[in-house]
Design a protein around this nucleic acid. Structure first.
Length: 286
DNA sequence: CACTTGACCTGTCCGC
DNA sequence: TGCGGACAGGTCAAGT
């Protein structure tokens, strides 16, 4: 799915476009995706758009919040006339006419605009929850979540303390554990470990303080670099002047199996950890 | 308890 | 061209 930067890009785009709009109707194409009573949403206005970990929340009037998780292949596409704001799993057809065959829910607003929730693999969901309960029941409603890595309180010591809640887990697997740090997925786990020059197979209890400091920098740097370039997906696509998210062009190791490493003459290697692909340079990352 | 694997789904790509 | 299998930016539940 979209990881932290991609969801954040979507959040920013939506915030700019849908705050103040009134929901006219919701068309649920795939019932399993939508949890709640859509009739409760008729006539409600959008108050704000927020993100926590990889989840996106749209607060509405009447103490209602739409909570989204895009999982692996979710896309949110806002369309008003010729204008499009796009984000999520990158596919060519997201540039084409909406809805398409992967559209699972359609939100219609009072000004004639639409928000399309597309999801090829259909793992994603959106649920209606009471806004007022989110703070008190975050664990129950959003799940156990570690700190936001781009917030000020995320220091290298916090990273270390949280990672060390695990004992014999490979560092790459721990980085993707949302209860330890929120928002890092398969791309940014590999990328931040490369920036820190740490081997993804290292067990968490072997990482030194110096390495935790570099890893902290690597996490922040990889996420911010991606945000700067619009995420690793399409974003802010307006009419025919499409602007893609180019992050993967800047990636050092992710998806670069067999290609030359940027830091040495060696080649990037791909291995499997906890069922997921991990990319790294065995020479640079010790 | 801590960690790994399978399941949820559809689509695409790669080798035979 | 067809087909099988592996794999895909995530997260649960079940299994070891």
């Amino acid at each position: 799915m979209p990881e932290l930067p991609e969801v954040e890009i979507i959040r920013r785009g939506l915030e700019e476009k849908i705050v103040g709009l009134e929901i006219k109707n919701i068309e649920v194409i795939r019932p399993k995706t939508f949890q709640g009573d859509r009739k409760n949403l008729w006539g409600k206005k959008v108050l704000n758009v927020w993100r926590r970990a990889k989840m996106l929340g749209i607060d509405l009037t009447s103490d209602l919040t739409l909570l989204f998780h895009l999982k692996m292949t979710g896309q949110l596409i806002f369309e008003k006339g010729k204008e499009k704001i796009i984000g999520g799993h990158p596919t060519e057809d997201m540039l084409g006419p909406m809805p398409n065959k992967s559209t699972v829910v359609i939100f219609s607003f009072d000004d004639g605009s639409h928000l399309y929730f597309n999801d090829q693999r259909q793992f994603g969901w959106v649920k209606v929850i009471p806004t007022s309960r989110i703070e008190a029941e975050e664990k129950k409603l959003l799940g156990e979540l570690g700190p936001e890595p781009l917030e000020k309180d995320f220091t290298w010591q916090v990273l270390k303390d949280n990672i060390l809640k695990r004992k014999k887990t490979p560092i790459k697997v721990a980085l993707m554990d949302q209860s330890l740090i929120a928002g890092i997925g398969n791309i940014y786990a590999s990328e931040s470990l490369f920036l820190a020059r740490v081997d993804p197979r290292r067990l968490v209890n072997t990482i030194t303080d110096g390495e935790f400091k570099k890893l902290h920098q690597g996490i922040v740097e990889s996420l911010q670099t991606s945000l700067k370039h619009g995420g690793s997906t399409l974003s802010n696509f307006v009419d025919a002047e499409g602007k893609k998210g180019y992050f993967l062009n800047f990636a050092n190791v992710y998806g670069k199996e067999g290609q030359a490493c940027r830091g040495c003459p060696d080649k990037v290697v791909k291995i499997t950890q906890a069922g997921r692909g991990t990319y790294f340079c065995p020479f640079c990352q010790k």
